[in-house]
Computed example of a mutant assay.
Amino acid sequence: MTTITAEEWNDVLFGAADLETGPSGGRMPHRIPAGLRRQLDGDAMFEWVESCSAGVRMRFRTSADRIALTVASTTLATNGVHPPIALVVRQGDDRSLVPLGDPTVVEIDAKRRVTGIRPAAPETVSVAVRPEQPVEIRRPHNARVELISLTADGTIEPSPPSGRRWIHYGSSISQGMDAVAADRTWPAAAASALDWDLRDLSLAGNAQLDGFVARTIRDTAADIITLKIGVNTVNADSFRERTFRPALHAFLDTVRDGHPTTPVVLITAIACPIHEHSPGPVVARPDGMAAAAIRSIEKDDGALTLARTREIIADAVASRGDDALTCIDGRELLGAHEADRLYDRLHPDQLGLDLIAERFVAMMR
């Protein structure tokens, strides 16, 4: 029998920056290194989305035909309701979902503070596998999962991913918190289709050109880097034109410090009618649909709209004289004529995510 615990997780876990000890004594993967993510200490929503393991997966071979995985999972509830969470187990063309049944439930208020926790105990799930064939277990993209132990009646050997190393940075549209499974977010689906090794730095609500994210990208090996920028900066009304342009250049400068010749693709916002020509912030209506705040660009000189972010991003790419830097108009991934795919007028439904993945793959090929 082989059991993996503690630091041995590093041998079979891919797509994470580091691990920290969790409340149940296991190990919790993070996508931003500890020393950098502390620069935003106290923001419960950022801490939540960063610790949800988009793109993080276990990969190994085993001589056993069954494994047991013990985890402690945590999910975020909205108005007392939380989404189902599951592990995705893949071997070749075979795929299965393993539901995680009784997670700890956390609630976060509008001021991005934790307001309640309903704790739950760790659980053990058993998974049938084919001996000696690579096993990939994708962790939930919409939940925090503490790894306690992996046990098999046989050997367990790491099976590192292959293919082009791809770093993707984006918003909730990329993290796909509403995707039906961890392999159905658009970056995960695209990585599978292209056979790329994804490092997913999608941070729902938090694609804010933070320097600590640029430094994470700078210090991570990559063969291609994609940066999907625009929607969160408008949603949060976090920049004006005066600050957005230099922040974008500074982010790119930092990335280039570590990747001077790596292909970098900037992707502008997909079509989102509520913010095409209306500045942020986004507000939630009583019916759960998103809307733009009632404002006037004339009264808010320099306030950003999605249309203006696209222009600034395209201008920045053209001005840098960087042959390895290109730009994709996000409306080529999901256009204005497909706005019905935005189930809340802001986030794509699963079909919308599938369309984005399919079109991105076609562009990359």
Rank of each mutant, 00 (worst) to 15 (best):
T262N: 06
G205T: 01
R218S: 07
I225N: 04
S192L: 12
L252F: 11
V231W: 02
I156P: 02
P187E: 07
S171Q: 11
A189H: 10
I173Y: 03
D237H: 14
L198A: 01
T216W: 09
L252E: 06
S202C: 02
R199P: 10
A191T: 09
L248D: 03
R184H: 09
R184I: 07
A152T: 09
G176L: 05
D197E: 07
G211W: 04
E241N: 10
A191R: 07
H259S: 04
I156H: 07
P260I: 00
Q175K: 00
H168F: 11
A247W: 09
V231D: 01
L209C: 09
G211Q: 02
G176E: 06
R184E: 12
A247Q: 12
V255G: 01
A188K: 03
T185R: 00
S202K: 00
S159Y: 10
G211C: 00
P158W: 08
A250G: 07
E241Y: 13
A207S: 15
L248S: 04
R165M: 09
P263C: 08
S159E: 11
P160F: 06
L203I: 15
P246K: 09
A152G: 10
L194P: 06
D253H: 05
G163P: 13
R184K: 12
V180F: 11
I224A: 15
T185C: 01
A222K: 12
S192A: 15
R256D: 04
P246T: 11
V255S: 01
N235T: 11
V265A: 00
T262F: 07
D153R: 12
P260W: 00
N235V: 11
H168M: 09
N232E: 03
V234L: 02
G258I: 02
T151G: 08
F239Q: 00
L248E: 02
L150G: 06
A221S: 09
E157T: 15
N206R: 14
N206I: 04
Y169P: 06
I156Y: 07
T216R: 10
I156E: 03
W166L: 01
D257G: 05
D178S: 10
L227H: 00
I224S: 14
Q208K: 13
W186L: 02
R199C: 13
A190N: 14
A190K: 10
S238Y: 13
A214Q: 01
I173L: 01
G230H: 02
G230S: 11
D195K: 15
G170W: 08
R215V: 05
D253Y: 11
V234K: 02
S162D: 14
A221T: 08
L198C: 05
I217H: 04
R218G: 02
D219Y: 08
I167S: 05
R245C: 03
I229K: 06
A236G: 12
L150R: 06
